[in-house]
């Protein structure tokens, strides 16, 4: 099967310092790939190149698709801009921009798409609400609805849950997982939370100082050895009560100085 996203020799340089250094990798279609690494490892630059808003966009290709990438690839930013005074319906409909002519306006087919995206994300009763009245979890839900309305086959998420509390983090990730499963979407998501990555992702890519440190199925990548090396801090992997893996950093400092599941940012 050909890859959904092909990155070849991607290098992104700021002030003569490469933040992404000659990265080549394939993202498999219909799977969830987690992009891991410390702050400054190059995750956001790689994401920006994939969605076409940063440098190095030319190093990324999509063999399964034709035409400009916004027609099939949607971006869910870390903190999406939610214009005050704009309604949920208006916002979701913005997703149709990708498929509209330069001077045309939305047709009823576009409105249908927006309506069904809103419906799929169970946001019907919010359709008339203003974006500035939504909670954090609801906001990410609306952004996902916009991505669906964009007819995206590939969702690229940049730390989509980092501004949410734990409960809403799980809610949003569950939702992405459900969409990915139901619609066969390809997911590429930068993510801080290693336990969440282990639980939701199929594949994982670990970036370290702009290079690929590890790549493969999550089980083979999210090992204490690989993670300890890439994150520069010892990691421990254990099983939670439901049998799913939990990955926690171990403090090198005094024993017993306990840690939480959330990877410190």
């Amino acid at each position: 099967m050909s890859a959904a996203i092909v990155i070849r020799n991607l290098t992104v340089t700021y002030d003569n310092t490469p933040v992404v250094n000659d990265v080549s990798l394939d993202i498999q279609p219909g799977r969830w790939t987690a992009l891991l690494g410390r702050n400054g490892a190059g995750k956001s630059s790689l994401i920006a190149a994939v969605v076409g808003i940063g440098r190095g966009a030319d190093a990324v290709s999509f063999p399964e698709h034709r035409g400009p990438r916004y027609r099939f690839c949607a971006y869910v930013p870390q903190s999406p801009v939610l214009p005050p005074g704009m309604t949920v319906a208006e916002y979701v409909l913005l997703g149709r921009t990708a498929h509209m002519g330069w001077l045309s306006s939305e047709r009823s087919a576009d409105r249908q798409k927006a309506a069904s995206a809103i419906r799929q994300l169970d946001m019907d009763r919010f359709a008339d609400r203003f974006l500035d009245e939504l909670s954090g979890g609801e906001s990410q839900r609306v952004v996902l609805a916009r991505a669906l309305c964009q007819d995206a086959r590939i969702l690229v998420l940049d730390e989509p849950t980092s501004s949410l509390d734990v409960g809403h983090q799980l809610e949003v990730l569950d939702l992405v997982a459900e969409l990915a499963r139901d619609q066969g979407l390809t997911i590429l998501s930068a993510i801080h939370d290693l336990t969440a990555a282990a639980r939701y992702a199929d594949d994982a890519v670990v970036l370290d100082t702009g290079r690929v440190a590890a790549i493969g199925p999550v089980d083979s990548v999210l090992t204490p050895e690989t993670l300890s090396r890439s994150f520069g801090t010892p990691m421990h992997r254990m099983l939670g009560p439901d049998g799913s893996p939990i990955i926690i950093p171990l403090h090198t400092a005094p024993a017993g100085a306990s840690t939480t599941t959330g990877q410190e940012s």
Partner: peptide, 22 residues
Amino acid sequence: FMMRRHLDVLRVGEAEAATLGL
């Protein structure tokens, strides 16, 4: 007048607007 829809798209910021095809 013709750019009014584009101005609405631009309200989400230039980066996001670009990923929407503007």
